[in-house]
């Protein structure tokens, strides 16, 4: 990733509808969370034109909650929604009978809902350091537990063998979890290698 690829440029690229291949935004954000998290400053929201229909001063959590409430009202009004802010992550959980229908194959429907919620959030708040995570019927939580186990197991393997362990290619959010789980681990370091669909985590023994 070129170091000059700043958030302000990112947003401009994002909104022009330019369809040529760019650095994946999620990847960018995921990597930010690991290595450059504290160094990125969000553009002050005041410099952006106010979007119509948005109350000034709405918190990011309120924006995400409002978006998801509107969505659920239209597709499954019986489901329950809870939204919390944890650090830079706005985490939403959808529960109730039939909530699992919002997961999709390998969480693709959740990813679509997350992208739309994030797009709405950027329109209304323009705080690029934020992430949006949407879970339904505990899918993400279980998935994260499995990823954490995989990370720990692979770290042990790397330390025992003294050789780098290459994990299978994963989407940005999954790689991010592996990095985070092993961040404080004294015996190993992690990095992502490969491009596009082939990008994967490599765990190096120290």
């Amino acid at each position: 990733m070129p170091a000059s690829f700043l958030p302000s440029q990112l947003r401009r690229v994002y909104y022009t509808g330019n369809v040529e291949k760019k650095t994946n935004l999620d990847e960018y954000l995921a990597d930010l969370g690991i290595s450059e998290g504290g160094e990125v400053e969000a553009e002050p929201a005041a410099t952006l034109p106010a979007a119509e229909g948005v109350l000034p001063g709405q918190s990011p959590e309120q924006v995400v909650r409002a978006f998801l409430e509107g969505l659920l009202r239209r597709i499954k009004p019986s489901l329950q929604l809870s939204v919390h802010t944890r650090g830079d992550t706005i985490a939403a959980e959808i529960e109730g009978s039939g909530a699992a229908s919002l997961i999709g194959k390998e969480g693709r429907t959740l990813a679509a809902i997350e992208l739309l919620a994030y797009t709405r959030l950027m329109r209304d708040c323009a705080r690029t350091e934020l992430r949006v995570q949407v879970d339904a019927a505990g899918y993400r939580r279980r998935h994260e537990e499995q990823l954490a186990e995989l990370a720990q197991r692979s770290a042990v393997q790397a330390m025992k063998s003294g050789e780098a362990v290459h994990l299978a290619p994963q989407p940005p959010g999954d790689r991010r979890i592996i990095h985070l789980v092993l961040k404080e681990s004294p015996g190993v370091s992690t990095e992502s290698e490969g491009e596009g669909e082939n990008r994967h985590v490599v765990i190096h023994p120290k």
Binding site: I75, A112, I113
Partner: peptide
């Protein structure tokens, strides 16, 4: 504003399609 609906690499319009199909 068409570009906003399409998104980079068509990701926004694809996400809209995914959500509508589920609904």
């Amino acid at each position: 504003e068409e570009g906003r609906v399409i998104g980079r690499s068509g990701r926004v319009i694809q996400a809209i399609r995914t959500v509508v199909r589920v609904a």
